[in-house]
C-alpha cells in the first residue's frame, strides 16, 4: 500500500494506492498530485492568475477545457437541483466574509449583506460569458472534479482512494472509510463510489458579531439556515456527491443515493444504505 499526503485546494489531500511500492506507484502518485496542482492553478478564485479569476475579472474569456467542463457541470447541477446548487454565489460568499482563503480569514468583520445569485452564464464552444454583475465560485465542485480526475489517473494503475478534505473517491476494491457522526464515527466499506459531506461544523467565522459560513442559500444570497449540521452523500462520483450534499443541506428532498444527515444531536440514515 502506497500513501501520499499534500496540501491543495485549501485542504489536505490523501492518496492511497493498493499496489506494490515502486517506480510505477511513485509515478502515478506524482501524476495525481500534479493534477491537483494544475487544476488549483486554473480553478481557484483566490489566485489572481487563475483562469477562473480572469473570467470573473473580464466577464468573458475563451477558456481551457477544464474550466469549460467544470462550469458546464455546475450549470447542469444548478438545473438539476432547481437552483439550490449555484456557481454564481461568488459575491454572496465575499459579502459573507469569505473573501480570502479560509486559513487567512480574520476574526470578525462587518455584518453580512445579501447579494443576488442566479446570474446567467453562457457557454458557447470554449467561450464563457457571465451576466454583468455576477462572478463564479467553483470551490466545492472543482474539488470534486479534481478528486475524480486524480482517481482516474490512479485507477489506471491499481485500486485507489483519493480523499481531499472530505471529498473522497474509492475505486476497484472495498475501502474502509471513517465518517463523522454526531457522537463519534462509523466506518463504511465503500467500493467504486464517492463520498462528500457538506456542513457548517468546520468552515465558519464571525461577521458583525454573528456566525457566518460558506454554504450560501442562492435564493437569499446569504449563508443558509438549515435543519442539518452536516449531510453526507454517497454517489458514483465526487462531483455528484458534492452537488447532492450541498443541495440536501439547503433543503432538497432526501432521496437515493445514500444520504446520512447529522442534526445537532444525532446522525441518521436518511436513505439508501443497503
Amino acid at each position: 500500500m502506497e500513501r501520499r499526503s499534500f496540501r491543495a485546494m485549501g485542504t489536505v489531500v490523501e492518496l492511497l494506492l493498493d499496489i506494490e511500492p515502486g517506480a510505477e506507484s511513485d509515478a502515478a502518485l506524482a501524476r495525481a498530485e500534479q493534477e491537483f496542482e494544475r487544476l488549483e492553478r486554473l480553478l481557484s478564485r483566490f489566485r489572481p492568475d487563475s483562469e477562473l479569476s480572469a473570467l470573473n475579472r473580464l466577464g468573458m474569456i475563451d477558456a481551457g477545457a477544464d474550466l469549460v467542463a467544470v462550469t458546464t457541470l455546475a450549470l447542469q447541477a444548478r438545473e438539476r437541483t432547481g437552483g439550490l446548487f449555484d456557481p454564481t454565489v461568488h459575491d454572496a460568499l465575499v459579502a459573507a466574509g469569505y473573501d480570502r482563503t479560509f486559513e487567512n480569514l480574520s476574526g470578525d468583520g462587518p455584518p453580512v449583506s445579501a447579494q443576488a445569485c442566479g446570474g446567467a452564464v453562457r457557454i458557447e464552444g470554449r467561450t464563457i460569458e457571465l451576466e454583468p454583475g455576477f462572478r463564479l465560485d467553483l470551490g466545492g465542485i472543482a474539488k470534486g472534479y479534481a478528486v475524480d480526475r486524480a482517481a482516474d489517473l490512479l485507477g489506471d494503475v491499481g485500486p485507489c482512494l483519493v480523499n481531499a478534505g472530505g471529498d473522497l473517491v474509492a475505486l476497484d476494491r472495498s475501502w474502509p472509510v471513517g465518517v463523522e457522526t454526531a457522537d463519534g464515527q462509523i466506518t463504511l466499506a465503500l467500493e467504486d463510489g464517492a463520498i462528500a459531506t457538506s456542513g457548517t461544523d468546520r468552515r465558519r467565522w464571525r461577521r458583525g458579531g454573528a456566525e457566518a459560513h460558506h454554504l450560501i442559500d442562492p435564493a437569499l444570497g446569504l449563508p443558509a439556515a438549515s435543519d442539518y449540521l452536516r449531510v453526507t452523500v454517497i454517489a458514483p462520483t465526487a462531483t455528484e456527491a458534492e452537488v447532492l450534499a450541498k443541495a440536501v443541506f439547503l433543503g432538497a428532498p432526501v432521496q437515493a443515493p445514500t444520504v446520512l444527515v447529522t442534526t445537532g444531536g444525532q446522525t441518521v440514515l436518511a436513505g439508501g444504505l443497503g
Binding site: 474539488k143 474502509p176 472509510v177 471513517g178 464515527q185 466499506a189 462528500a196 454517497i234 458534492e242
Partner: peptide
C-alpha cells in the same frame, strides 16, 4: 445510469476519515 456504489457499515478500522469539506 452509472452503477450505484457498493457501501455497507463495517467494524473495520478506517484507512482514512472523511469530514465536512
Amino acid at each position: 445510469p452509472p452503477p450505484a456504489p457498493s457501501v455497507r457499515v463495517v467494524t473495520l478500522p478506517p484507512l482514512t476519515i472523511t469530514r465536512t469539506s
